[in-house]
Each structure stands twice: as C-alpha cells, then as structure tokens.
Write a protein that binds this DNA or RNA. Structure first.
Length: 184
DNA sequence: AGGTTGATCTAC
DNA sequence: TAGATCAACCTG
C-alpha cells in the first residue's frame, strides 16, 4: 500500500526509522530501503533548512510527503522526503536500498538516485498521490534496525555526532560500515 | 586522498 | 557579471 500523507506528518526521527524496509518505486524500478538519515529543521545545523527558505531549499518547507531532490558536489542528486508539518523543515534522506528485481546495490545516496532514475525533475513531487512518479510503499518484514552518526556532516559540530542515521543491520547494501563515534 | 561540477556567495 | 567557494559523494 502507498504510504499516506499521515505517515510523513511526524518527526523526521520517527519517519526515518519507519522507512527502513519500505519499498520505493520509480518508473519500472523497485527497491527496498535499508538506510536513512533524519534532518530536523532550521535548528539542526546539518539540515538544509538552516539556510531558511531559498530557491534551493523551498521544497523542504513544503507539506509532509513532498519529495526534495537536490544536487551535491556538482554531480550527485540526493532524494529526501519532507516530514512533520509544512514549514517545519524536517526531512529524511534516503541513503541506500536493495534492488528487488535485479541485483544492483544502491549503496549511497548518489548511486540510489542514479539507479532509480530520480532527478531534480522530481523535486517537489507529491509522494502519496495515486499517480505519483515516485511512490513509497509500506514496509515488508521486521528489519533489525541499528543507528549511528550521520555521514558527511562533520561541519555541523555537536549536531554531527547525534545517532540520527538508521540502517538495516542485516542488509548487504548499507553504504558504509558504522564508523566509531570518534570521527572528525 | 582527491576529483569532480552546478549552485550559491562575494566582490567588483 | 565573473571569479571563488561550497557541498547530506564516489572511486581508487
């Protein structure tokens, strides 16, 4: 079943955990999500919402269930889902997934969007719409969920160390081994 | 450890 | 406007 708008209307931490094991469908491709990260609005110094509403960050302040796709490092697109409430700036980054219909590893946010053919053209799309181009379907099974610090946000000082990354500890497709907390 | 490049920021 | 800087990554 397609995840309803109410699924997204919760804190990003809750949604990030709940999305492990959910399926993502884009065009004719389908994958099982195994890794996510929560970003919790303007006060979270790792979250894009900290810049306020700009042309780039506009969708993250939209209603829950909105897709937010942005470009990093000039070449990789990252796919996020907007959470909580309109204007809250909460979002969950989808970092990795297991392909279901083939054996591709979608083990990183840039590789995931490339394999699923998600681009900035999907920015601002409504994920719970019946005819959505990108759909998220409810979880199958009961994954074992572990947490760690978020990846690639070392600039965010104390916000960088919070255990706001969630992953299926039994999946082969998790993007990187949990690093010890002493990183910087 | 370093390449890579579009978007954003800063200084004319 | 042009040039510098930044960035939720990827590959070796």
């Amino acid at each position: 079943m397609i995840l309803p708008r109410s699924f997204y209307a919760r804190d990003a931490l809750v949604v990030a955990r709940a999305l492990i094991g959910a399926r993502i469908v884009c065009g004719d491709r389908i994958a099982r999500i195994v890794e996510t990260e929560a970003y919790r609005g303007p006060k979270d110094l790792a979250c894009h919402a900290r810049f306020g509403e700009t042309p780039r960050t506009k969708p993250i302040f939209g209603p829950p269930g909105t897709g937010y796709v942005f470009l990093v490092y000039g070449m990789h697109e990252c796919f996020n889902v907007v959470c909580k409430a309109e204007g809250s700036g909460h979002a969950v980054l989808i970092r990795a997934a297991e392909a279901i219909d083939c054996d591709a590893r979608l083990d990183g946010p840039g590789k995931l969007t490339r394999e699923l053919a998600i681009t900035r053209a999907h920015n601002g799309c409504i994920l719970h719409a019946k005819d959505a181009e990108i759909k998220l379907l409810s979880r199958v099974g009961r994954p074992k969920i572990a947490t760690s610090a978020r990846v690639g946000v070392g600039y965010a000082c104390e916000w960088a160390d919070l255990p706001w990354r969630f992953f299926d500890s039994e999946s082969y497709a998790v993007s990187r081994p949990p690093k010890s907390a002493i990183g910087r």
